[in-house]
Each structure stands twice: as C-alpha cells, then as structure tokens.
Design a protein around this nucleic acid. Structure first.
Lengths: 333, 333
DNA sequence: CTGAAAGCGCTTACAG
DNA sequence: CTGAAAGCGCTTACAG
C-alpha cells in the first residue's frame, strides 16, 4: 500500500497525496478531505525510508557512548532522547567498547549516512578519528567530554572547578590527607587533578602523589582503588572519588576494610546520579546538571541540523555541591 | 559520491560495483580489484538508505521499553543490542511513558516501516495495541513480559516460581510475617502474588492482605511502600520486594524508621541488578538471568527476521536465589 | 491549485 | 562474467 494506491483511490495524483501528507503546498479543501479520508480508511502511513531517500535526511541521530559510568550516561541518554524526540528525531546508540579497533563505530556513523547528526560522549585515543570528524559534513557535538583541539560545539562542566570546589570543601571540613580517585583515559582527569592540586596549594598543603589513584569508572574499580590508597597511606581521612559510580565502590571497599563513613573516612563523589540519596550513608557529591548537559547538547545539534550557524565556544554548565551524610567535619568548635 | 561515480572511475557498470560491494555474484578478479582499489581510494561507503529502500529492510529493530526499573532494563538493552549488533542490526529505543495516549509509540513502530523487527518489554493496557500487533507482518517478540493471549514468542522467567521460591526461603529462615511489595500494572504481579500465597499455604500460614503493597518500580516508591507496610503491621520481620530497584528503597525506608537490616528486618529482592553486592547490607535477591533473557529474545527475533518459523511456546529461563547479607534466620539451633 | 515526470542511490532480474 | 534498464516509494521543480 503506497502513495500511488492512495492516489488512485482518491482519484488524484501521487503529488497531491504527498502534498496533503506533508502540508508542503496548498491543496483545495475538497481534494484534501477526499485524500485524508482514504488515508484514514486504509490506515496508510508513508514509507519512512523512501522519504529519507529523497529528502536525504534520516531523522536519526547517532549517540556515541562509552561503556563506562552506566548510570551517568543513562541519564544523559534519556534527556538527549527526550529533547530530540520532540523534534521528530530518533536516536541510535553506538556503544564503543575499549577494543583496539573501536574506530569502526565512528566510521559507521561518519561515513554511511546513517545519521543526520552525531553526539559524542566518548573520548577516543585515535587522532585519525578526530580528523575524520573535522572533515565530515554531518553536525557533531561533544557532550560532557572536552577535546580542546576540536573546534566544534561542546557542552560540559568545568572539571577544574568541580575538582577544586570539592577538594576545598573537604579541606574546609578540616581534612588534610585527602585521597582522590580519577577516571582513566579522559582528558577531564588532568584538569581535575590540577583542581585538586591547586586547592591543596591554597591551603599550603604539599601534594602527595601517593594519594592519587585511577579507576575505570565502575563500582568495582572504585572499591579496588580505595583499597590501594589505604594500603599505601592510612592517614587518609577523606576520599574524593571523581565519579559517583566509583564512589559507590569506595563505600563498599571501606566497609570491607572495617572503616565507617563518615566516622573514620569522609567520602565525596562527583556526578550526581540518582541513587546517591539511597546509599548508606547518603553520598555527598559535586553534582553535574546531568539532564541539562544532555538537553543543551541536543538543542545545539538540532540547530546545526537545521542549518543554523552555532557558536563553537564551549557551553560550560554549573556544578553544585550537594551535602548529604558522607562527609564529616574534623574541626572542633 | 555514489556507486555511479565509482563505476565510471573503474570503467565498469554500477551493477558490477554493487556486486563486488555485496559479493552477491561472481565478478572477475581483475574487475573486482580495480573496483576495490577505487572504493578504497575514494573512501566510498554505500548509502545505507538507498540499500534499505530496494532491499525493503532497515537493519534496525525497535525496542519498546517502559520507563520503569531502569537498571534492570539497561542490562537487557545492552545484551539485546550486543546480540543484534553481531548480526548487523542497530536498535532504536522507543521508551513508552505512562501517558494516556502511549499507543503512538507502538503505531510509529508498527506502521511506519521503521524497523525490521520489534522487541517489546512494556505491557500496555490498551487492547487495540494487541490486535495491532497480531495483524502486523513485522516479527515481534515479548521480552520479560507475559501476555498469555498473544501467540508470539516470549522469553521470561517463571514469575510464580520466583515468588514462591523467594517466599519459601524466608519462611525456612523462620519468618512468619512476610511483607511483599509488587510492581504495579504488570501481569507478572498476579502470578507473583499467587506464588507468595501458595508458599504461605504450604507452611500453613494464613494470607494477610495487610502485608501486600504495590509500588512503581522505583527506589522512592519502594521506600514509601515499606513505610506503609510498617504503619499497618509492625510484626513484620521480612520484606520480599519483587523488584530490586524498589528493594533499594526498602533498605532506605527501613533505615529512616530506625530499623536495621538484617537484624530487625530481613529484605529479599528480585531481579539481580549489578549494584546489589555494593549495597549495605549486600542484598540477597532472586536473580533473573537478565542478559540471557535479552540474548534469547534477540536470537529468536533474528530467526524470525530471517524468515524462519519459530516456536511460540514461551521460553522460560531459570531464576536462582543469591544469598548475600540482607536476610537473617530467626531459628535458634 | 493540480499533474506528469524526473530523480534520490542503490539492487537485481534479464539478456547477452 | 558483465551491462542496460527497471524499479524500490516517495518529493518537487516544472508546466499548465
């Protein structure tokens, strides 16, 4: 059942059917009504692929997501999806695993006309992918990642400040031996480390590399990281895990070691995923405006797909420290 | 840059290019090589939409997911995606919200030729959708839901048995006042309730409807449900929350009421999501083979999309009780 | 306001 | 083994 059959039954041309379907051009009321009633009667729906073909538009955007921090990325995914759906787009997830030839995922999306736009949340280590992205004609926005060399729109928080603010919070509670856990492989890590160092410096505390650990953005790696931290240095009184999912593992690891939170050790997370208030103790965290990051990324992509010229200077969204019950003050009043 | 230009540069016909691209028909080695080298040189990739158009195939499957039990559904999504990806399919998520006119989501998928197959994880209350599904020519499989009246493939656990086994476990630990929390709106709820009742009956314990609560598959609703349960009956010594995500809320709610798990109250979940070992206490749960449910659903759909005749009798996968530290025996030895 | 015709970029009988 | 041609189901100048 195609547009032709509808046209025949309504005794008009396919062009007319197309016009009433899309409202692209005026059609006389009588023809319009005739066509509409046939369409309704037959339960006809235009073939989406054929439309895509001639319009050269997929109504689809590709979302490149790493396979880390699942809870964080799920929230972003939802908000991107919601925003894009309102505009009539569907999103297809391209999950990149840490396989050596992960560039295939990008290639698929960049070269095969599969998507009208791309949102990238994964930082690749392969420079050839970056030049590919620069050369493609499909709009790309970087969501929650930071690749300064790419002159394309990006939406994220200020990682340096998020690290600095969180560390300062712990310092102001009187902590002096603050372990941090960073995530591996993302450029945010460097900035976060710098934020931590600068916060220490302002409080005249020497940086000690023993207090820095790296994890893989999973609960399990968080648990292992905190164990390593304490095996090297047991003067630690606070942990700033710069990824909530790892912080869940930190709580677990500390429990395994027989340490109480916040009595023995204070724990601070970063991200602001949904489960934090339900943890034990409820986890304090430097919260990203996660849904807003997704929403803004989607909106910018939408503008680009509509051919608008967009500003490529980074959109930096505000984080905010949310206190719950996992951090304790060491100061006596 | 299309197949025509490639053909011209290689001095062959578009048909030949298509044949080397798809390997559908033998091509002489010399032509093949000539074409291949041009393709490589030009970085050509076939236009996916044009292929879809003539092949009448999208290489896409639609996944209808409810907006509940996010952690559970994420795992299924991942395993479905992985299985389908190996076969060259992409998946598009259709998230159905509880809006009154949620049938639009189904319509989109069922009528607009958007997907070659559909996996449904959402139970709708609208009978017209079921008849729509019955009439469609696109393959559909029901994943982790149970609609007996639909004569199409389904993959799930035995909800009755899962409820029965979990309840029996608590009974055998000596619990006599066992509260349960069911999820709203899914037919599994009835079977689970029956499993609970039958387990009680075998232990000659009278059913007490005061001990049954219903939640919305969220942490928050679990927390509220357990509060209601205790406000009605404080002899309860165990809670069987038949959804892990709600069980997380149960732990939280009990903590709020000043009750310890498992000292004061034992808590048992159902699903087997990733976070259970990291909770405090680590949550015992009747575990579904979640990735396997997704995998099998995808495999059956794949077979159907290949035109194979498949068995429509339900595939029932085994659950298993995983003991952690949230349940305590009341028996003294 | 309406229709005949070309065309989107592929694949595949069909003929050779 | 190879190519010319038709066709997938739409949209949109173009002409009237």
């Amino acid at each position: 059942m195609g547009i032709k059959e509808i046209a025949k039954k309504a005794e008009v041309s396919p062009a007319t059917v197309s016009r009433v379907l899309n409202g692209t051009k005026a059609v006389s009321p009588e023809l319009k009504e005739r066509v509409l009633s046939i369409i309704k009667y037959e339960g006809y729906e235009a073939n989406h692929i054929a439309r895509s073909m001639v319009l050269k538009k997929n109504f689809t955007v590709g979302l490149i997501i790493p396979n880390i921090s699942e809870m964080y990325h799920r929230i972003i995914f939802s908000s991107i999806e919601e925003t894009l759906e309102e505009a009539g787009y569907k999103v297809i997830v391209y999950r990149v695993k840490d396989e050596p030839n992960h560039e295939q995922v990008y290639w698929d999306l960049l070269m095969k006309n599969r998507a009208d736009g791309i949102i990238i949340m994964h930082e690749t280590s392969k420079p050839e992918i970056y030049s590919q992205i620069k050369n493609t004609s499909v709009p790309v926005v970087l969501c929650s990642i930071n690749i300064p060399s790419m002159d394309i729109p990006k939406v994220r928080i200020d990682d340096y400040r998020a690290a600095l603010d969180g560390t300062r919070y712990l310092l102001e509670l009187g902590h002096r031996h603050i372990g941090i856990i960073l995530g591996r492989g993302y450029s945010a890590g460097d900035q976060r480390l710098q934020g931590y160092r600068d916060a220490l410096e302002k409080h005249s505390i020497a940086f000690n590399s023993e207090l820095v650990e790296v994890g893989e953005y999973t609960m399990e790696s968080g648990s292992r990281a905190v164990t390593r931290l304490f095996s090297r240095n047991n003067a630690i009184t606070a942990i700033y895990s710069m990824c909530d999912e790892m912080a869940i593992g930190v709580l677990h690891g500390l429990r395994q070691m027989g340490l109480s939170v916040p009595e023995d050790v204070s724990v601070l997370g970063l991200d602001g995923i949904d489960i934090l208030p339900y943890l034990c103790p409820p986890l304090s965290s430097v919260q990203q405006p996660i849904p807003e990051i997704g929403r803004q990324s989607a909106k910018i992509l939408l503008a680009m797909m509509n051919g608008e010229q967009v500003d490529t200077s980074p959109v930096v969204l505000e984080h905010k420290l949310v206190e719950r019950q996992s951090c304790r003050s060491l100061l006596t009043h």
